[in-house]
Design a binder for these strands. Structure first.
Length: 797
DNA sequence: GTAGGGTTAG
């Protein structure tokens, strides 16, 4: 065939077919790919503009890898192919690869459109500074900016928007370039001025004045001009001016109304937004997908499920012809409405029925699962996703880390970077929380350093994550340092810092910080009260705690949940006020759940109140019969009292019900590597040396009065058959390994999945004295700082 | 081959 047909004629045919696919609305990329398959099958080698077109098609249909493959087969790709690829990489949020193509293009090949694509890439990926820098480069190299260049650069400027001078400078450039009458450029310029006006660093009125002047002097205005002005007023917190502007318009432009509605939504005026929606219906103003999405998102954010459902019904009634691309954004908004109102499965049903979906649809379902803590479904959904963007990764990483999957979170963070996505501050926050979960301090510190390098150090979410990370890795001072140097803080930051102090036994300081928070007029939320109650409990501040508990309902109108009551009961029990705790349980407005009985059981154990302990344990056996912790606590209680028969009974019932104790494991980070130890570990390669060194240490410790406490051996029931003294808990091994491997004088930081045992706790006190070092142990619940023979918890945990 | 506003997402 290829010999008999004229090559040029075939090429023209293919070219026009591809053209046809792309000019369809929506473009038919799958048909285009079929045509490509045809070319391959018939041995037609695409070149020149046909190949460029194919690269464009693969880029736009989310198959950049294949587009890249085609690109790399070209010996000398022309500027069109390069521009296409840059645009595709930036649209996919992959700046690194876009920059690679850009940098690999010799100056002699470049043109204005090529620069425009890269400038847009930076701007779209929120790097306004890089975009403007490149614009200056381009001018230095004597490329002539056109109206595309200016719209992009002005978009970038609007991102930074903190200097009046820059706006005026580029305004001057526009006038010099002769594009000063082009509506699109003027729209972008107005947008830059109004965004700049909303920055706290500039004078809002003079910049809004400049925008208004531009608006009035424009030769020709379009829909965008009006909406830009309206959103401009909204951004500058002048809703009245925006409304006045809208009401002064002679034509009834739907888009302008949409802008006003979204302005109301963003400022929290939901009723006004809904009112405008109704008015539009009455006045017969054209409603479009933006009207619907705005209103739906308003309902979603305000939790107005009924209103949202009404809008849903209205759309189904009036939009008889569900054009797929029209319905795409509306469906996305509907999916969001349903999951935000707690209807995850309904959201999934809408998603399943959608005839076309985009990355937003996929991300919406992913966030639905993540937010509902349905992490297994999120994981498998993530794997199924046909494409991923920066948000996808971020959602999944933070979902994993917040659900305790630290290792998987970090793995995904690395994978994301390997695939060329530059992590934003939210992604960093997820990775940092992963480190917090793992107790990987060195790794967390490195992420902190990278954060600073990449300029994310003023980020709120990353800062809050860092506070948590340092605290959970045992470095309270680090947490405090981040807290004090953050440029802006919110209630999450305060909560994190109060929690940090509380977990480390600095109850008084936690309470002081809470008081300071109140003084600075930050309104405490339910989380704040949880942390401050825990802090009181760890520090034994019973009176304060009760006082705060009461103020929560009386002054802040927060109804205490079961979690708050559990903290209160914990507070009373630890202080030995068991009967008072029982009173509180009786007075609760709801049936006590597991967390209440757990607090009571732990309190009874500390104070040796066997009767109450048994009572609480029985309730727990009813509520969660599979939970191993109850059996362990109860048997330890019996063991302490020497009631060996009862110990055996508990053990038997555990065996009968097929319940296995979660194996204890501890880990310590040495030179950026996490070393894990199990009870009586035989797996770690250096464990023999650890046992030898431990033996030496115990000899020294005995001289100071240490006596191994054998009753705690029952803590690990699977190993009961072993001789008590021989059984070595994982935390001891990890601490000794840390002493051996960490630099002289460095604090040993060890993490354990379960609550630490009494003998280990005692041993670490002596150990800290013998080796003259600080030992920090984080167990399932809290921190112990051992220093010079004492523990920060005051033997109270 | 490249853009500017309104919407959907942490």
């Amino acid at each position: 065939m290829k010999n008999t047909l004229d090559f040029g004629a075939v090429a023209n045919r293919y070219a026009s077919l591809l053209e046809l696919c792309c000019s369809r609305r929506p473009p038919s990329y799958s048909l285009a790919r079929t045509i490509h398959a045809h070319m391959i099958a018939y041995g037609f080698r695409a070149r020149g503009h046909i190949l460029n077109r194919l690269i464009d098609i693969y880029c736009k249909s989310s198959n950049i890898t294949y587009a890249r493959h085609l690109f790399e087969k070209i010996a000398e790709p022309d500027i069109v192919a390069r521009t296409t690829l840059i645009a595709a990489y930036s649209a996919a949020g992959n700046l690194r690869l876009a920059r690679e193509v850009f940098a690999g293009t010799p100056l002699s090949l470049r043109d204005t459109v090529f620069y425009n694509a890269m400038i847009t890439g930076y701007s779209h990926n929120n790097d306004g500074h890089a975009a403007i820098e490149l614009f200056r480069d381009m001018r230095r190299e004597d490329f002539r900016p056109d109206n595309f260049t200016f719209t992009s650069v002005l978009g970038a400027l609007a991102l930074i928007a903190d200097e009046e001078k820059q706006c005026q400078q580029i305004h001057g450039d526009v006038l010099k370039s002769g594009t000063g009458f082009v509506t699109s450029v003027l729209n972008a310029l107005i947008s830059a001025y109004v965004k700049c006006a909303s920055s706290p660093l500039t004078s809002s009125s003079s910049l809004m004045g400049a925008a208004k002047k531009l608006f009035e002097e424009m030769p020709k205005r379009d829909e965008l001009t009006w909406t830009t002005m309206i959103t401009g007023y909204v951004r500058n917190d002048d809703l009245a001016a925006a409304r006045e502007f809208l009401d002064g318009m002679t034509e009834k432009l739907g888009v302008a109304w949409n802008a006003m509605i979204s302005g109301y939504v963003h400022r929290g005026f939901i009723q006004e937004a809904l009112e405008m929606f109704r008015k539009m219906q009455l006045m017969g103003i054209q409603l479009d997908e933006f009207t619907y999405t705005s209103v739906l998102s308003a309902c979603a954010d305000a939790g107005l499920f009924k209103h949202g459902k009404q809008v849903h019904a209205y759309i189904l009634r009036t939009e008889g012809r569900p054009v797929p691309e029209f319905m795409l954004s509306v469906n996305n908004a509907l999916v969001t409405l349903y999951w935000k109102c707690g209807k995850v499965d309904e959201a999934r049903e809408i998603f399943n029925k959608m005839s076309i979906r985009d990355i937003v649809s996929w991300n919406a379902i992913l966030s639905a699962y993540v937010n509902a803590c349905r992490i297994e479904e999120a994981k498998s959904f993530f794997k199924e996703m046909p494409e991923r963007n920066l948000l996808t990764w971020t959602l999944m990483i933070s979902g994993l880390s917040q659900n305790g999957f630290g290792e998987e979170g970090l793995k995904l963070f690395n994978q994301m970077r390997m695939e060329g996505f530059e992590p934003c501050d939210y992604a960093f926050a997820g990775a940092i929380i992963s480190c917090a979960v793992l107790g990987a301090l060195e790794h967390g510190r490195q992420l902190h350093a990278q954060l600073v390098q990449l300029g994310h150090d003023s980020s709120l979410s990353a800062g809050n994550a860092l506070i948590t990370m340092y605290a959970r890795c045992g470095v309270v001072e680090g947490a405090n340092c981040v807290f004090l140097t953050m440029p802006y803080v919110d209630s999450v930051s305060w909560n994190a810092m109060i929690a940090a102090l509380g977990q480390h036994g600095h109850g008084l300081q936690a309470v002081e910080l809470f008081e300071q928070m109140l003084k600075e007029d930050i309104i405490p939320d339910r989380i704040t009260f949880l942390t401050v109650l825990s802090a009181c409990s760890h520090a034994g501040l019973v009176k304060k705690g009760r006082q705060y508990f009461d103020s929560m309902c009386d002054f802040y109108a927060i109804t205490p949940g079961e979690d708050h009551y559990a903290r209160l009961i914990d507070l009373l029990c630890r202080a030995g006020k068991l009967s008072e705790a029982k009173e509180v349980i009786k007075s609760m407005p709801f049936e006590p759940g597991a967390s209440i009985w757990e607090a009571l059981l732990a309190g009874s154990r500390i104070h040796g109140n066997m009767e109450l302990g048994i009572q609480a344990a029985e309730k727990l056996f009813e509520l969660m019969p599979q939970h191993d912790g109850t059996y362990v606590l109860l048997s330890n209680m019996y063991a302490t009292a020497g009631r060996w028969n009862d110990v055996a009974k508990v053990r038997k019932s555990m065996r009968d019900r097929g319940i296995k104790k979660e194996p204890g494991c501890s880990w310590v980070e040495v030179e950026n590597k996490v070393h894990v130890f199990l009870v009586d570990d035989t797996v770690h390669p250096e464990v023999q040396a650890v046992y030898n060194y431990l033996e030496q240490l115990v000899l020294e410790m005995r001289k100071l009065g240490y006596v191994p406490d054998t009753k705690f051996v029952l803590h690990d029931m699977d190993y009961e058959h072993k001789e008590s003294v021989l059984s070595t808990h994982s935390e001891k091994l990890a601490v000794v390994f840390g002493i051996m491997k960490l630099p002289l004088g460095a604090t040993i930081r060890v993490f354990k999945n379960l609550r630490t045992c009494g003998d280990c706790h005692n041993a670490f006190k002596f150990m800290s004295k013998v080796v003259g070092r600080e030992i920090v142990v984080r167990d399932g619940k809290r921190f112990h700082h051992f220093r010079n023979g004492e523990c920060s918890c005051g033997n109270y945990w």
